[in-house]
């Protein structure tokens, strides 16, 4: 059992080891939907929500597989459960709040293949976090993801107005900006530990 304090877990997941800028998890949505501020915020909210749900699931699966003695099934169980959880959450939101469902749109199903979600499940298991620690870790990771996405979207909205050479337009420019953001986040190293 890991004894790390909740505050340090939260800061670590959110800033120091930001999932996008330090672990390179969830790069696809990071590059894909960070064009507009509004969509970035929604995507971040959706990911945070799914992270919390799948964190609880992963904790349960891990405990169950430990009890049964089949750790080699972990990966398969994680991915299957996360995929079906996202599906369930999607149906639930559609039923209870159509407005929110429309707002999230295509992003909800896409989250299944977001490596940040599976990464979160694997990391929390590897680190041996308890139930509350896992929840805090998921919350921190989700907020960190949202923060990176929103920062990036803000920068890209400004960049649209700037004059850039044709060669750097598109992915290359986004990657350069992401690199600079990543350097900025390295300033948080050592915090909370």
């Amino acid at each position: 059992m890991n004894q790390e304090s909740l505050g340090s877990i939260f800061l670590g997941a959110c800033l120091v080891n930001n999932f996008v800028l330090a672990y390179f998890l969830g790069i696809c949505p990071f590059l894909g939907v960070s064009g507009k501020l509004a969509t970035a915020t929604r995507m971040g909210a959706a990911v945070t929500f799914v992270m919390l749900v799948s964190s609880v699931c992963a904790y349960g699966i891990h405990a169950l597989l430990e009890a049964v003695g089949a750790p080699f099934l972990q990966l398969i169980a994680f991915i299957a459960v996360i995929a079906s959880t996202v599906q369930l959450v999607e149906m639930f939101i559609k039923k209870t709040s159509p407005a929110l469902f429309r707002a999230l749109g295509i992003f909800l199903p896409l989250i299944t293949t977001n490596c940040a979600i599976l990464g979160l499940a694997l990391f929390q298991t590897n680190k041996g976090y308890g139930f509350v620690q896992s929840l805090v870790y998921a919350l921190g990771a989700g907020l960190g993801f949202t923060l990176a996405l929103v920062l990036m979207a803000g920068l890209r909205e400004k960049l649209e107005l700037a004059e850039t050479p044709d060669v750097v337009k598109g992915t290359a420019l986004t990657l350069l900006v992401a690199g600079i953001l990543s350097i900025a986040f390295m300033g948080f190293a050592g915090m909370g530990s």
């Binding site: 800028l21 390179f24 420019l173 990657l175 350069l176 992401a178 690199g179 390295m186």
Partner: peptide, 10 residues
């Protein structure tokens, strides 16, 4: 470190 990955790919 992580930023180098972004820069090299760019």
């Amino acid at each position: 470190l992580p930023p180098g990955g972004f820069f090299t790919l760019a």
